[in-house]
């Protein structure tokens, strides 16, 4: 019985792990079969960046989904999703430096210091690094309380990523709007929950006080 459950869990783990890798595999196939058009560099950078953000949004969606629908099985995958976001972000940056800039240090530096959309994107990436490094269980244990505080960085990272999209809008904001609305929901949910939690606590404390006074 227990063995069966374990196999099931393993299968689920692999299914999720592999499906999160699919965009990367599809991209590799498109590269090999030269199916990316006249400007493969830009396609690759854009695709990788898009998936970095998609997985960041997925990571942020796990807690609300778990609480709203009781999907408790999701929680162990939050780390995997976060690490996938980091994985795609690394490749996004690496392919930008390689395929677009050709490791021309002068151009690279000027891009990363002068273009506002590139600056916020780069800062978001830098903030993501410590989160990836401290994502292991042993780190979690070692950092104790600080771990949770450190990982609250994911909120500014998400906001910077959204800014990274918004500042690249040229003529249509439907995509930015979609990402923005989703993030507004994901962050709004937390804000709302915290507020109700606080008021509940306060009410409880007040009740307790009243009871004690009597």
């Amino acid at each position: 019985m227990d063995l069966k459950r374990k196999t099931k869990q393993r299968a689920l783990w692999w299914a999720i792990f592999l499906s999160a890798l699919t965009p990367f595999v599809l991209l590799m196939i498109a590269i090999v079969t030269q199916n990316l058009g006249a400007d493969p560099a830009k396609e690759i950078v854009l695709e990788l960046g898009t998936w970095a953000i998609n997985f960041l949004w997925v990571t942020l969606a796990i807690t609300p989904f778990r609480k709203m629908f009781g999907f408790n099985w999701m929680l162990p995958y939050r780390r995997m999703m976060g690490l996938y976001s980091f994985f795609y972000a690394c490749l996004h940056l690496l392919s930008f430096a390689t395929f677009i800039v050709g490791w021309d240090v002068k151009i690279l530096l000027s891009e990363l210091t002068q273009r506002p959309y590139a600056i916020v994107g780069f800062i978001a990436f830098l903030l993501l690094v410590p989160l990836a490094v401290t994502s292991t269980k042993s780190m979690q244990k070692r950092l104790k309380k600080h771990w949770l505080n450190l990982h609250k960085l994911v909120y500014p990272i998400a906001l910077l990523s959204l800014l990274h999209i918004i500042w690249q809008i040229r003529s249509d904001f439907s995509e930015a709007l979609m990402y923005g609305l989703m993030l507004a929901f994901l962050l709004g949910y937390r804000f709302f929950k915290r507020k109700t939690k606080k008021t509940n606590k306060r009410e409880k404390a007040q009740k307790l006080k009243a009871a004690n006074a009597r």
Partner: peptide
């Protein structure tokens, strides 16, 4: 205002030479 116009990438660009 959002990017440099000093150089350009001549298309088609291949992956290992940005053709800048």
């Amino acid at each position: 205002p959002r990017w440099s116009q000093a150089t350009e990438r001549r298309l088609p660009s291949s992956l290992f030479s940005p053709n800048r």
